[in-house]
Write a protein that binds this DNA or RNA. Structure first.
Lengths: 230, 230
DNA sequence: CCTCCATGTCAACACCTGTTCACAAACTAC
DNA sequence: GTAGTTTGTGAACAGGTGTTGACATGGAGG
C-alpha cells in the first residue's frame, strides 16, 4: 500500500531540483515528457537487472526506451544528468514515506516492529529506486555520489529533529541527537540493502530480517535511553 | 604503522583462495608473478582515482600495467577473476588487522577511542583496498558481490564469538550476539566509507569523525548492556 | 493559415572495446 | 645444449560507444 502512487507519471522538476524547468503551465498534452519518463524508466530497469548505472551506455538506455540515441540529448545533456534526475526522484519517494509516517499516530506498544514492517514493504515496492541509490552511492560518478550523500545528510538531520521531540531525549544536546540519528540511518541503509537482496518470495527470511532489524533498533534505543544518565 | 606491510609483494594464492595455484615451490625467480601484481595494482589505482571496477576495461588495466592486452589472459581469464583476487586480498589485510588487535591487550579505560583511532588510520593506509570493496559491494558483478557479502558475513561471525568472551554478555544467546555483531559491523562499514571520503589532511574533520564513531559505539555498548536486564 | 519550436530521425565520424591466432622471447629442467 | 613451458607481442576481427550535423514532423500560438 501507499507505494502504488509512484507508478504514476510525473512531469517536470525531477531534473531541475530548484525550479528552473520551463515554467510549468499548460501540461494538457499527454505526450509532454513521455520520452523523458521512458528514458528514466529504461535506466531504472537496466540498473535493477544489470549491474551499474555508471556502466550503462547512452545508446543502450535509448534503445530500451524505444528511441534513437540522438533523441536522448533532447531531454538530458548527459548520462550524469539522467542520474541526478533519478537521485532526485528516489529521495522524493522516500521523503513522502516519512511524511506519511510522521502524520500517523502509532500505538506505542508495537511501534518498532510495525515501523520495520512498513519500511521493508516500502523498499520492496520501490525496489528500483532504492536499488539505484544503493548501487550509485559509492560507485557512481562524483556528481551523483555527492548528490546522494547530501540527500542522506539532510534526511539524517530531519530524523534528528524528529528525535528531539521525544521528551525522554530532551536532555540530549544537538550534536548527540545528530549522532544518534546517524546511528539509526546507518542501520536503516544496511537493512535496505539486505531487503534488496532478499529472494523474491521467502517469508521466512523476511521474518528473520524484520526481527533482527527490530532488535537492533531496540538496542540503539536502549543505549540512547542510558546515554548520560548512568 | 602496522600498515606498511601490505605494500610488499605477495605471490600466489590471491586468485586461488583454496589452494589450486601451481603447487607453490621454487619461487626464487624475482620475475614470478610480477605482471600479475602489476595488473592488480593498476586496477586498484584506477578504481581509486576513477569510478568503478565494473566500468574498467581490460585494455585500460593492461595499458596501465605496461603490458599488451593479450598478456592479461596469461594471468586472469576474466576481469571478474581479477576482481575476485582483489576481494580476497582486501579481506586478507583486514583479517590481519583483527588478528593484531586480538593479540594486543588494551587498557580498558580508553579502549573505544583508541580502537576507532587505529582503525581509521588502518583504513587510510589501505585506502585502495577499502575503496575497492566499498565500491564493488553493491555495484559489482554478481560474483564479486556475493564474494564480498560472504567475507563480511564471516567477519561478523568472528566478531560475534569475540563478543561472547566478554563475561558481561554471557547471558546473551547466540542469535542476539550475532545481531549485536551485525550492529557493530554496520557502523564500522559506514565509518569506513566516511573515512574514505575524508579530505586528505583535515585533522579537525578527522577528530570529529573519531568522536562521533566513538560515541556511536558507546551507545551500542550501553544498549547491549541493558539488553535483557531491564 | 502560417510560422516557430520542440521533438525525433538518419547517416556518419573517430574511437575504444573483448577476443582470436600465430609467433617470438625467456626461463626451467634435463 | 636442447627440449618444453611459461610469458609477452603484434595484427586483425566484429561490434559497441559518444557526439556531430543536417533534415523531417507535428503541435502551439499568433
Amino acid at each position: 500500500m501507499s507505494a502504488k502512487r509512484h507508478n504514476s507519471v510525473h512531469f517536470g522538476s525531477q531534473a531541475y531540483p530548484h525550479g528552473m524547468e520551463p515554467t510549468t503551465e499548460t501540461r494538457r498534452d499527454p505526450r509532454r515528457g513521455r520520452t523523458r519518463r521512458a528514458l528514466m524508466d529504461a535506466a531504472l530497469e537496466l540498473v535493477e537487472k544489470k549491474d551499474n548505472f555508471t556502466a550503462l551506455s547512452l545508446r543502450l538506455v535509448a534503445r530500451k526506451a524505444g528511441v534513437v540515441p540522438t533523441a536522448f540529448y533532447r531531454h538530458f545533456p548527459d548520462m550524469d544528468a539522467l542520474g541526478l534526475a533519478l537521485v532526485d526522484e528516489s529521495f522524493r519517494t522516500l521523503r513522502q514515506l516519512m511524511r506519511e509516517v510522521r502524520s500517523t499516530s502509532i500505538p506505542v506498544k508495537q511501534v518498532m516492529r510495525q515501523s520495520m514492517e512498513t519500511y521493508i514493504d516500502y523498499v520492496r515496492a520501490n525496489a528500483q529506486h532504492f536499488q539505484f541509490v544503493a548501487k550509485e552511492r559509492f560507485s557512481g560518478s562524483p556528481a551523483i555520489r555527492t548528490a546522494i550523500r547530501q540527500e542522506i545528510r539532510l534526511f539524517t538531520s530531519e530524523l534528528a529533529t524528529d528525535l528531539s521531540r521525544f521528551p525522554i531525549l530532551d536532555k540530549v544536546n544537538a550534536e548527540d541527537l545528530q549522532m544518534m540519528a546517524g546511528l539509526v540511518v546507518n542501520n536503516m541503509t544496511s537493512l535496505t540493502e539486505q531487503v534488496l537482496d532478499l529472494p523474491a518470495d521467502d517469508p521466512e527470511e523476511k521474518e528473520f530480517l524484520i526481527r533482527t532489524a527490530e532488535k537492533q533498533l531496540r538496542v540503539i534505543v536502549l543505549g540512547a535511553l542510558a546515554w548520560r544518565s548512568r
